[in-house]
Nucleic acid binder design. Sequence first.
DNA 1: AATTTGTGCAACCGCCACCTG
DNA 2: GCAGGTGGCGGTTGCACAAAT
Length: 173
Amino acid sequence: MTKMEKRPCNEPEVRKGPWTMEEDLILINYIANHGEGVWNSLARSAGLKRTGKSCRLRWLNYLRPDVRRGNITAEEHLLIIEMHAKWGNRWSKIAKHLSGRTDNEIKNYWRTRIHKHIKQSENFATLPLSNFEEPVFTNQVHSSYVPADNALSQSNDHNIWGMEDFWSMQLLH
DNA sequence: AATTTGTGCAACCGCCACCTG
DNA sequence: GCAGGTGGCGGTTGCACAAAT
């Protein structure tokens, strides 16, 4: 919340924006002890000043132990394209076929990598054939479209706390 | 070195469907 | 049948960081 907003004084304070390490730990600990439940009451019981929706999203997209982030493989890349052709923007449906992947990640991946390149190739299509480059999805392109390792480490770098850290801390309790 | 522009991703928003009383 | 609460989904936004100028 960047601006000061008026809020009725009887309404509980609701935090927005990026999650802090403390909040993550509270949520992880609470779910580890009590399991997932009704998210609104979970948020209240855990003492988090977040909406149930926000907690659910954070858990599903980031904190779940089985969630896999980054490093989309060529195989997954192909599956995404295939399933998107079949179902369109049904991200959650697509995500269910890619274990550990979230709809949010696939949606972002599509928008930032695949869709962008399709747009680009559409632009190429308006050019004379002599200017036309490789079709977007060839074997050759698979490797170039899979995020480079350094790009991944870059994206993981600003997560100072990896999920492994959280879960290893969890095991200590 | 400073500034601008582009990119990737986490998180929010709004809508809809389902459930329960 | 209706209203309120909740979960799930897809679209969009805001921000941090990288790359380009």
